[in-house]
Structures are given as C-alpha cells and as structure tokens.
Amino acid sequence: MIQIKAKPVQFKFNEYLSKGFELLKKDFGNFILAYIFCAVMSIIPFCGLLAAGNFYKYCRKIDKGEPAGPGDIFNFDDFMPYFILQLIIVGAVFAIYIPMMFFIPIAAIAGGDSPSPAFMMFLIPYIFLIVIAFTVVALIGFYIPGLISLKKITDIKTLWNMSKVMTKNNLLSIFLFAIVVSFLSQLGVFFCGIGLLITMPYFYITHYFAFEDAMQQIEYDEIKEIGLKNE
C-alpha cells in the first residue's frame, strides 16, 4: 500500500530545468495549445489556480505516456480546494489593506494637498513587509498545487502543514528556482509577445517536475517497507 508522509524534500534545481525542456520538446505543439486553454480558463473567475493544476496533471500524463489531450485543461474535479485556497488569498489581501483604509483618510486630513511625511514613513515599510510576508508564505506553500492536483489532498490545513514540512531548508532554492524559471519563461516578450506561447509552457512544465519529484520522495510503499524490515 502506497502511503504519503510529509518530510523535507531534496530540491533538484538543475534536474527540473533540464527535464522541463526535454518534455516540452516531446509534445511541443500540444503543450502550446494546452497553455492557450490554460490562459482561457484563467479568465473564468476563481479558475486560474485550477487551470494551472490541470496543466500539471496534463504534464504528468504526457510524461508517463498516458492518453492525454489539451482539452484536459477544462476539468473541474479539483475546483473546490482551489476555490477555497483563492478565497483565503483574497481574504488575506483584504485584511492587509484594512490598516491603510483607516490610515489614508487620517493622513489626507493631516497633510492636506501634499503627502504627509508620517504617511510615507508608514507606507514604505508597510509595503516592504507585505512583499516579504507574501513571498515567504508563497515559498512555504510551494507544494500545495502539486499536493492538490497530483495527490488529491484537499484539506487546506493539511496541505499547508505538509508543504511547510516539505519546503524545510529549501526556501532559498525554491526562491532562486522561481526567479530563474520566471526569467526563462518571460523571454518570449523579446519576440513581440508571441514568443510567450513558446516560453510560458516551460514555466508550468518545470514546476510539474518539481512537484512530481517531491511527491515521489514523500511516498513510501508500506508493503515493501515491511519486507525490508523482515529481511
């Protein structure tokens, strides 16, 4: 029986980049079409993360040689966990703006037409702290999409706790990975924007390999483990 137990994951930075490129070459045309469908589905409210998750499942099918088509992107099986996750994100963003909703009117009254020095002293560190907080939370929650789409785990608290354990000691590597992959995927901008259809699928494919490798690392076969202990 295959069991899943969260543990710190060995992050294989270069392997994900190279495997992503190889898989993209394997089914180049369909990956471009799948990305277009992913972009279209992202237009639907609260379906952006779901579209990305479906892209990861599509990548797994192509990687494993299973029957798959770009139309698999339009799948709503995982809608609820992604919907709840996005509601939490929206709620967090709204909560962050609550202090500014009170401080801005006060600063406007005190400063008149010119910006208040006190307001700027508050705003700049506040924005800086927000960026840092969002970055850290995003890094800790890095494996959540993979756990939802590739392992069918839907409880948000469980997802967060598992991802927190899996990313332990890997936050810097994941941060650098995100920067490098984002840069490579945005190279299409230099080709009048059309090139994004070629480079953006690479962004998702490399993330798929990061998720897939992590899922394999946290799996263990209970039957095999018992056999090894008996030996």
Rank of each mutant, 00 (worst) to 15 (best):
P201S: 07
Y220G: 02
F28A: 04
G48F: 06
L159C: 02
M121F: 10
V40N: 07
I223D: 15
Q10P: 02
S173C: 03
D77H: 04
Y35Q: 14
N54V: 08
F183N: 11
I44K: 01
Q186R: 10
C59D: 00
I144E: 08
F211Y: 15
V189L: 13
L147D: 07
N30A: 05
Y82H: 05
F79T: 05
L150A: 03
I73N: 06
L196H: 03
Y82N: 05
Q186C: 08
M200N: 09
D78F: 11
P99K: 13
L87M: 13
S42D: 11
P115H: 03
C192M: 14
T158I: 12
F31S: 04
I62L: 13
I44N: 01
K25G: 06
K168H: 09
G53F: 00
A51C: 10
C59F: 03
Q216C: 00
M215G: 08
Y208D: 08
A138M: 14
S42Y: 02
E219V: 00
E225S: 11
Y208G: 03
P67L: 02
K19Q: 15
F46K: 08
D113L: 13
M41Q: 11
I156R: 14
N75P: 11
F102Y: 13
I144G: 07
A107E: 06
A6T: 04
L17Y: 01
T206V: 12
L184V: 12
N14F: 08
G20A: 11
P99M: 14
G195M: 08
F211R: 01
A68C: 08
S149P: 06
Y58L: 06
T154E: 12
T135V: 09
V136M: 08
A34Q: 09
F190I: 08
L196T: 04
I153D: 02
C38W: 00
D213W: 00
K64H: 14
G53C: 00
F134S: 15
T135H: 04
A6R: 01
F134N: 12
F119M: 09
M200Q: 11
P201Q: 07
L176H: 10
E225W: 06
F83D: 02
K25E: 09
E22P: 02
M41I: 08
I218P: 05
N170C: 06
Y202A: 04
M101F: 11
I130S: 14
I174V: 02
G29L: 15
A178F: 10
A210Y: 03
V180Q: 05
I218S: 09
F175P: 01
I156E: 15
Y202M: 05
G65W: 15
A214T: 04
L159H: 03
G53Y: 00
Y204T: 11
G188Q: 01
Y220W: 13
G91C: 15
M166Y: 10
G29D: 13
L87G: 04
A108Y: 11
I2S: 10
Q216I: 00
L17K: 03
G65C: 13
I132K: 01
K224C: 08
V93P: 00
F142G: 05
D77P: 00
P145Y: 00
A214G: 07
G29T: 15
M120P: 04
